[in-house]
C-alpha cells in the first residue's frame, strides 16, 4: 500500500525531527492516539514522532475493520509492521500502552530488525487468572465487560460515525473530540475487547530480543504490579520502572513521571 493510503487508513500523525529516530506510539483498548497528548510532544526535539489509531479506533478507516483479521492481536501486530514498512521506519522505538505492549511484542518478535527499543506502559500478557498466575480477572469478569460495553454503546449511534471519521486534523480537544473520544462502533469495540482480554502472550515474551522498558503503575486495576513483574522477569532484556501513579493510564494521570522514565531509557 502507498504511504498516503496507509497514513489515511491509520490516521497517522507525524511530528518532530524529519531525520530523527522514529518513535512510534500505539494506544490501547478504549480510546485513541490522543492518549499520548501529554507524553509524545516532549520527544519531538530529537525523534520522529509517529502517532496512529488502530483500525476501528479514533480517526482510522472504520471500513478497513475486518472481524477475522482483528480477532487476535496478531492482526494488530501486522498493522504495526505495515506502518513501519510504508513509512520506511527503521531503528524504531515502539511505545505501546496497555494491550499495545503485547502488539508491539508480537511485531518485534516477527521482525526484530525494525526495532531498537520497546516501551511497555501497563502491559499484561494475560488478563485472566490461570493456576498460579494472577492476571486480575476471572472469565466471568470479561463477559461482564462485554455486557458493560453494550450498555455504554447504546449511546453510540451510526450518526456519529462521520463525526469520528471526518476529523482530518484534531489539533485541540474541542467539542468534536468530546463527541468522539473513547467512542467507537460497538461491534468493533466488542471485537477489540475480545482480542485484548482473551489473549495469552505469556509464552511469547521470552522471544522478544529487543531491549524493553516496563512501566508499571503503583496502583493499576487492569495490570497489577504482579503482572508487571511477570513481564519484567519473562523478557530477556528488560528494565523495570515502578511509577507512583494511580490507574491504568499513567500517560494521562502521571505524565511527567512517564515522560521522565521513557526519556532516560531512550535518550
Amino acid at each position: 500500500m502507498a504511504p498516503v493510503e496507509v497514513a489515511e487508513r491509520y490516521n497517522i500523525k507525524l511530528s518532530g525531527q524529519l531525520d530523527g529516530q522514529p518513535m512510534l506510539f500505539a494506544h490501547g483498548f478504549g480510546c485513541d492516539q490522543n492518549m499520548w497528548r501529554y507524553v509524545a510532544p516532549s520527544f519531538e526535539d530529537r525523534f520522529r514522532v509517529v502517532l496512529f489509531d488502530h483500525i476501528g479506533a479514533g480517526g482510522s478507516d472504520l471500513s478497513a475493520y475486518d472481524p477475522q483479521r482483528y480477532s487476535t492481536l496478531a492482526g494488530y501486530a501486522e498493522d504495526v509492521l505495515e506502518i513501519c514498512e510504508a513509512l520506511d521506519l527503521h531503528d524504531v522505538v515502539f511505545v505501546g500502552h496497555s494491550v499495545s505492549a503485547m502488539i508491539g511484542a508480537l511485531a518485534a518478535i516477527e521482525t526484530p530488525d525494525r526495532f531498537a527499543k520497546l516501551v511497555f506502559v501497563g502491559p499484561s500478557p494475560r488478563y485472566i487468572d490461570d493456576g498460579d498466575y494472577v492476571g486480575g480477572f476471572g472469565p466471568d469478569d470479561i463477559t461482564e465487560l462485554l455486557d458493560s460495553l453494550e450498555s455504554n454503546y447504546l449511546g453510540w449511534s451510526g450518526a456519529m460515525a462521520p463525526v469520528i471519521m471526518g476529523n482530518p486534523d484534531r489539533p485541540e480537544l474541542g467539542d468534536e473530540l468530546t463527541a468522539s473520544f473513547c467512542r467507537t462502533d460497538p461491534e468493533i469495540a466488542r471485537g477489540f475487547a475480545r482480542a485484548t482480554f482473551l489473549s495469552d502472550n505469556r509464552a511469547d515474551l521470552r522471544h522478544v530480543k529487543t531491549p524493553t522498558l516496563v512501566l508499571q503503575s503503583s496502583n493499576d486495576a487492569i495490570a497489577p504490579i504482579a503482572v508487571g513483574e511477570f513481564v519484567r522477569d519473562a523478557l530477556p532484556d528488560s528494565t523495570y520502572v515502578l511509577l507512583d501513579a494511580t490507574g491504568h493510564c499513567p500517560n494521562l494521570s502521571a505524565p511527567e513521571a512517564t515522560r521522565a522514565a521513557i526519556a532516560s531509557f531512550v535518550r
Partner: peptide, 17 residues
Amino acid sequence: PGGRIYHETHYAPMLQM
C-alpha cells in the same frame, strides 16, 4: 470487575482529557 476495566479504559481517560 468488568465495569472497572471500562472505568480504566474509557471513563478515566475521558475525565482526564
